[in-house]
């Protein structure tokens, strides 16, 4: 089982992602609605991969990742961003700064599990 920490402020999207990942049967998912909640729970959960929404009120996905990676034990966890932003340069900047993958919203729920599995096995890419 792949332990995945999903951080997303939109409850509907959290539910769809949970259902989509649940279909594959290969993920143990913990969901958080904010960056601060994720930071509080990440160490105890010790995920294999982080799935972070980019734009969230309070702490953004990027800021959340920066905080998590301050802990040496968690610094090497691969991070995948989800973003509704259209700017290509922003997506490229995320990849340059260590994101394993950037998934654009709206995403295909049926392809989500495969995309994540692929991203944590191979170098960075944009979907």
């Amino acid at each position: 089982m792949i332990k995945l920490l999903h951080v997303e402020d939109d409850a509907d999207i959290r539910e769809i992602a949970m259902m989509a990942l649940g279909l594959s049967g290969e993920f143990d998912v913990l969901q958080c609605s904010s960056g601060s909640e994720a930071i509080a729970k990440v160490k105890a959960f010790s995920p294999d991969v982080l799935l972070l929404d980019m734009m969230m009120p309070g702490m953004t996905g990027r800021e959340t990742l920066d905080q998590i990676r301050k802990d040496p034990m968690l610094a090497s966890i691969p991070a995948i961003f989800m973003t509704a932003r259209a700017q290509h340069s922003e997506i490229e900047e995320l990849l340059m700064n260590g994101a394993a993958k950037v998934i654009s919203k709206p995403f295909d729920p049926m392809a989500l599990a495969d995309q994540i599995k692929l991203a944590i096995k191979k170098p960075t890419s944009i979907d």
């Binding site: 939109d10 509907d12 999207i13 769809i16 992602a17 259902m19 989509a20 509704a84 919203k105 709206p106 995403f107 295909d108 729920p109 049926m110």
Partner: peptide, 13 residues
Amino acid sequence: RSPLTSIKGAMGL
């Protein structure tokens, strides 16, 4: 895009 993600995701599922 955020609400569309939910709409499309729900319909896709």
